[in-house]
Simulated assay, not measured.
Amino acid sequence: MNSGIRFDSVTVTYGGHDGHTALDALDLTVEPGEVMALLGPSGSGKTTALRAVAGFVRPASGRVFIGDRDVTALPPHRRGIGMVVQQYALFPHLRVDENVAFGLKAQKVPKADVPGRVADALELVGMGAYAKRYPRELSGGQQQRVAIARALAIRPGVLLLDEPLSALDAQLRSGMLAELARLHRELPDVSILYVTHDQVEALTLADRIAVMDRARLQDCGTPQELYRRPRTEFTASFVGNANLLPVAVGEGSVSLGGAELKVATDGVAAGAAATLCVRPHLVGLGPGPNALTGRVTEVQWRGATHRLFVEVGGQVVKADVRELRQPPLLGEEVVLHFAPEDGVLLAAGVRGG
Rank of each mutant, 00 (worst) to 15 (best):
P164S: 08
P164F: 01
L165M: 12
S166K: 07
A167M: 09
A167C: 10
A167I: 06
A167N: 10
L168Y: 11
L168N: 14
D169C: 05
A170T: 15
R173D: 13
R173G: 07
G175M: 10
M176D: 09
M176G: 10
L180H: 09
L180G: 05
H184E: 05
H184M: 02
H184Q: 13
R185Y: 04
S191Y: 00
S191M: 04
S191A: 13
V195I: 09
H197V: 08
H197Q: 10
D198R: 09
D198I: 04
Q199F: 10
E201K: 06
A202K: 08
A202G: 12
A202L: 10
L203C: 08
L203M: 15
L205S: 06
L205N: 04
A206W: 06
D207R: 03
I209P: 00
I209C: 04
A210R: 08
M212T: 04
D213Y: 06
D213S: 11
R214I: 05
A215I: 07
Q218Y: 09
Q218V: 13
Q218I: 14
Q218W: 03
Q218P: 05
C220L: 15
G221E: 05
T222F: 08
Q224N: 12
Q224W: 14
Q224F: 13
L226Q: 01
L226K: 03
R229P: 11
R229I: 10
R229G: 13
R231H: 09
T232V: 03
E233Q: 08
E233T: 10
E233N: 06
F234K: 00
F234N: 01
F234M: 03
T235G: 09
A236R: 00
A236E: 02
A236I: 01
S237C: 13
S237M: 14
S237H: 15
G240W: 12
N241M: 12
A242D: 03
A242L: 00
N243S: 02
L244V: 10
L245C: 01
V247N: 02
V247R: 03
A248M: 06
A248R: 14
G250A: 05
S255W: 15
L256T: 06
L256C: 04
L256I: 04
G257P: 06
G258C: 15
E260C: 14
E260L: 13
K262V: 12
V263G: 06
D266V: 10
A270E: 14
A270K: 13
G271A: 07
G271Y: 00
T275V: 12
T275H: 03
C277R: 01
C277N: 07
C277T: 03
V278N: 06
V278R: 01
P280R: 06
H281Q: 15
L282V: 10
L282K: 13
L282W: 09
V283Q: 01
L285T: 01
